[in-house]
Write a protein that binds this DNA or RNA. Structure first.
Length: 502
RNA sequence: GAGCCGUUAGCUCAGAAGGUAGAGCACCUGCCUUUUAAGCAGGGGGUCGGUGGUUCGAUCCCACCACGGCUCACCA
């Protein structure tokens, strides 16, 4: 919307007019005495006398609505904490009344006056004086229907936040959730740390990295796909309980469940195993539910999810066996498994063998059934190159994933702490990489060296924070819980239409 | 990356056999000193996402492109 838009032209004209009268449309500080929330107590209960005793108050915020009535004018002013009505009268404001009626929805003003209650009972500031704090030059979306266009909501999140009531609540909830995670872990003696986001060897997850370049060091670096290998180095260094909440970057497609940068909690606890983390995870999510909503029962997209522990525990192969209608085990013949799958109408990639086959089948057959919180445990070892083996069955990893609302929320395992076996596992990954799997893990010599110094038995877990927020805030797309989701750049034409000029 | 759907006024949406478009809100003018989706009367505003093609004529049909959404694929 360039300047030839009538609505913008009108506002620019008002801007000029203000300046000609010696008024700065973009004012400076305003001595606010009250946030709107401070009036909350008074809103319904205060008597006329109590309101009078309060004397003069000063509020500041954005005009959200204007109702002109000739010689009076009502406005709604919104600050960070709420909305309050303003009432301006020609006989009170004298010459300034004309200025008040020139205000536009979207403008920031500061207003000073006394509180009173209107005929309809609404708490209102009778404006004695006001100041221009910032002129708004673009019209806001409609007061009734708000902003619905998804693209605009994501690209211009500031407008979305302004106009759509629930959006701010989602991101407030995200912030509260992260805070509650910290409370929970801090209370259990975990230390929050930060590890490199730019890594010379991207490790800790099977994923394709983003590449960037450091000029002074003259080297390529990768945006991390996981902090895992660095956090374990810290456990080697004696930090027995560490966690990090930060961004991971994976060079993959986007979907309602996936975003190229996403926030992940990873934590490591020495002298524990995956089983301990199941209990910790139950306790953590329960704590979150209590902090955020006060109840372990949630509704996600019309479906109820009950986080009350204990949660269902399902072994990977038991889940698969049930889905396939015949028992399968890690050493099953791939051909016969593929036949079983086909009998169920599932066409699997004939290239897929071993871990890949299991993974494909599990994702197709079992994951979509996991609505209630479920720990899936005993993963095929091939899928878990950083995880310790099960003693009873060396083809299984001591690992679990948490599913709820048919989505993977967490991934945890007892960490492999034998440096020689870790080197072997990396070698296997290297062969896969040579076979063209560009998501296979890279060999990280320094990580092996760290393990050679000795890492205590440790359990580690990663939890996708954005997905957790989706669950708690009942949002269908990960883009709805990321303030500025990744989008293609606006085209030249669209850019011109959105006024990047000025 | 593939398939399907979408893009009309600042916003939310209608619309037509193919004959250059409409509503509500917002905006402008007038009236209005307790309104609140204020009201009443009048008015302005559109390269119908872009580029080509078919046609006497395209916003509508066709092709290509851009952007977005959903599903699939990959991952968490």
């Amino acid at each position: 919307m360039s300047d030839d838009n009538e609505l913008i032209r009108r506002r620019l004209a008002k801007l000029r007019a203000l300046r000609e009268r010696g008024i700065d449309p973009f004012g400076s500080r305003y001595p606010v005495t009250h946030w709107v929330r401070d009036f909350e107590r008074l809103r319904d209960r205060a008597t006329e006398e109590e309101l009078r005793n309060l004397g003069t108050v000063s509020v500041a915020g954005r005009i959200m609505a204007l109702r002109h009535h000739g010689k009076t004018c009502f406005a709604h002013l919104r600050d960070y904490t709420g909305q309050i009505q303003l009432y301006a009268r020609a006989d009170q404001l004298a010459d300034d009344y004309a200025l008040f009626t020139e205000l536009d929805v979207g403008d920031f003003i500061g207003a000073t006056g006394e509180l009173f209650r209107t005929r309809t009972g609404e708490l209102t500031v009778a404006v004695k004086s006001f100041a221009f704090l910032a002129k708004s030059l673009r019209p806001l979306p409609e007061k009734w229907h708000g902003l619905k266009d998804v693209e605009t909501r994501y690209r211009q999140r500031y407008v979305d936040l302004l106009v759509n009531q629930g959006v701010r609540e989602v991101f407030t909830l995200k912030s509260r959730l992260i805070k509650a995670v910290r409370e929970f872990l801090d209370a259990r003696g975990f230390l929050e740390v930060e590890t490199p986001m730019m890594q010379p060897i991207p490790g800790g997850a099977a994923a394709r990295p983003f590449v960037t370049h450091h000029n002074a060091l003259g080297t390529d670096l990768y945006l991390r796909v996981a902090p895992e290998l660095y956090l374990k180095r810290l456990v080697v260094g004696g930090l027995d309980r560490v966690y990090e909440i930060n961004r991971n970057f994976r060079n993959e497609g986007v979907s309602t469940q996936h975003h190229p940068e996403f926030t992940m909690l990873e934590f490591y606890q020495a002298y524990a195993d995956a089983g301990d983390l199941m209990e910790l995870t139950e306790a953590l999510l329960l704590h979150l539910a209590q902090s955020l909503t006060g109840s372990p029962r949630l509704t996600y997209q019309g479906e109820s999810v009950d986080l009350s522990p204990p949660w269902r525990r399902l072994s990977f192969f038991q889940g698969l066996s049930e889905a396939l209608g015949a028992p399968v085990a890690p050493d099953a013949d791939p051909g016969s498994v593929q036949r079983l799958a086909r009998a169920k109408g599932i066409e699997v990639d004939s290239e897929a063998i071993g871990g890949q086959l299991w993974k494909e089948l599990f994702e197709t057959l079992v994951e979509p059934t996991l609505a209630e919180p479920t720990f899936v445990f005993d993963f095929p070892l091939e899928l878990s190159p950083l995880s310790k083996r099960r003693r009873e069955n060396p083809r299984l990893a001591d690992r679990f994933e948490l599913f709820a609302a048919r989505t993977e929320l967490a991934n945890a395992y007892t960490e492999l702490n034998d440096p020689h076996e870790q080197r072997e596992r990396f070698r296997e990954q290297a062969t896969q990489r040579e076979r063209g799997d560009d998501e296979a893990h890279w060999l990280d010599e320094d990580f092996i060296r760290a393990l050679e110094y000795g890492m205590p038995p440790t359990a580690g877990e990663g939890i996708g924070i954005d997905r957790l927020v989706m669950l708690f805030a009942d949002q269908p797309s990960i883009r709805d819980v990321i303030l500025f989701p990744a989008l293609r750049p606006e085209s030249q034409a669209a850019g011109a239409g959105n006024g990047e000029e000025r």
